[in-house]
Amino acid sequence: MPTYSTNEFRKGLKIQIDGIPFQMIEMNFRKPGKGNALYECKLKNLVRGTVTDKTYRAGQTVEAADVSEFTASFLYKQGEDFVFMKSDDYEQYELTPDQLGDDAKFLKEGMECSLLVFNDNPIGVTLPNHVILQVQYCEPAVKGNTATNVSKPVTLETGAEVLAPAFINIGDWLRVDTRTQSYIERSKDPNEG
């Protein structure tokens, strides 16, 4: 099993403790002047989603997590669950609403995502950073107001609500950042190529 030494620790590293995969979501290198280096980590349990604090001394090693990540597209919702299909072998995976969290609001059929799998079980999904979605509802655009500093809530086709400038209309296409859940710019209709 491959391992990581403390000097390879960095944010985002996926490690395994007692068979459970964790992601290092924070890593703070602390070293009192003349003392031993300490690596203060916040570890997210990739199966349960919980976060724990763990401190390592310089020179310790941890196991690399036995997880794989690959491209899969969102097919459809089956009951409460979300069904994805791996792009290369058409294998299907189901994720629960809990595993998707807020990201579910930006999911659209056919969207290509990155699926994280541990022991053949899907444990998480990462959406593309930027997605283009159509406005389903918003208050009418204010004529002549092209200022970008006036915002209003708009509802997108997937059900997500973001703040967008006042000139946006129903039917417009918006480029949205899924990480910050925020409006970036008005976009062309992606179907028109």
């Binding site: 203060e40 604090d53 401190t55 390592y56 001394r57 310790q60």
Partner: peptide
């Protein structure tokens, strides 16, 4: 959060 391999004799650590 205590590291797992803390020495038992080194007070400085």
């Amino acid at each position: 959060a205590i590291p797992e391999n803390m020495p038992t004799t080194d007070r400085n650590e």
